[in-house]
């Protein structure tokens, strides 16, 4: 269980990214965080695994306060949370296999990893992960030779290498086209349902939210302005929508079928 308590983040330049954010994520949830660019979604996700140090507040992960951890303990906690990114964050010039197996670094003695000596179990694990995501045949290609959707699957495979209990996904489909977006979220859904991983994912597209989430948080200017289930989103009133996306935002359609033709974008005027 993940518990966020009164989390606040003020950057060095004075930008207030998060203001007293509190919420709880139960194990096995698929939580989607929606909000405009700059609403603090990325900062929130990065505060959870401490890629960004919060200014105030606590992140409690299975009873351990992550904000107090340092060094080895922090790295051990990070191992339990796989992270995937909007721009995939692969090492473009390295092979797919090397990118994936790098997910194992937190489990290795430093000297072994410096020599690049991954053991057979890790290699097998990497191949299994690649198989599971359907890109085993791409293993020896350079990461930047793959398409966007394939690169994101490499990112997921890398996260899986950590045997995580939770996946943090920072707008994982924002650089992909709608078909691939569904594809990637289906993989996350599979992990959520088959492996019972907790998913915390930030998104732009409302129809994806309705399709995949078990719960939704709306973030605006660093504050939680909305909380509800996927059914609530379907029934979301215009006022609530404007709470999240601002006064000038307009909903394009109320359809939730998920068909491409009626694909819905939280469009802004």
């Amino acid at each position: 269980m993940l518990e966020i308590r009164h989390l606040t983040k003020v950057y060095d330049d004075g930008t207030v990214a998060l203001k007293d954010v509190s919420f709880t994520v139960e194990d096995g949830e698929f939580l989607i965080i929606i909000g405009l660019s700059g609403s603090g979604k990325s900062t929130l996700l990065r505060c959870i695994n401490r890629l960004v140090d919060p200014t105030e507040g606590d992140v409690i992960w299975n009873g351990v306060n992550l904000t107090e951890l340092e060094g080895e303990e922090l790295r051990k906690a990070r191992r339990e949370m796989g992270m995937i990114f909007q721009h995939f964050n692969l090492v473009k010039r390295s092979s797919v296999f090397k990118n994936v197996i790098a997910g194992r670094l937190g489990f290795m003695p430093t000297w072994r990893s410096l020599l690049g000596r991954f053991n057979d179990a890790d290699r097998k694990k990497a191949l299994t992960a690649l198989h599971r995501l359907g890109i085993a045949d791409q293993a020896q290609k350079r990461a930047d030779e793959l398409s966007g959707g394939q690169q994101q699957r490499v990112g997921i495979a890398r996260a899986l290498m950590q045997d995580p209990k939770m996946i943090l996904a920072d707008e994982p489909v924002a650089s992909l086209d709608p078909v691939l977006a569904h594809n990637i979220l289906e993989y996350l859904e599979m992990l959520n349902q088959e492996d019972n991983l907790t998913i915390v994912c930030s998104l732009h597209y409302l129809d994806l939210v309705q399709r995949y989430s078990t719960r939704v948080l709306g973030l605006r200017d660093g504050e939680i302005v909305y909380e509800g289930s996927r059914e609530d989103i379907r029934a979301m009133a215009d006022e609530e929508f404007k709470d999240i996306y601002g006064e000038e935002a307009q909903r394009i359609t109320g359809s939730v079928s998920g068909d491409l033709e009626e694909f819905e974008i939280g469009g802004l005027a």
Partner: peptide, 10 residues
């Protein structure tokens, strides 16, 4: 990006 990603693996 990759630095962030590798840090996130622990």
């Amino acid at each position: 990006g990759p630095i962030e990603a590798i840090q996130a693996t622990g």
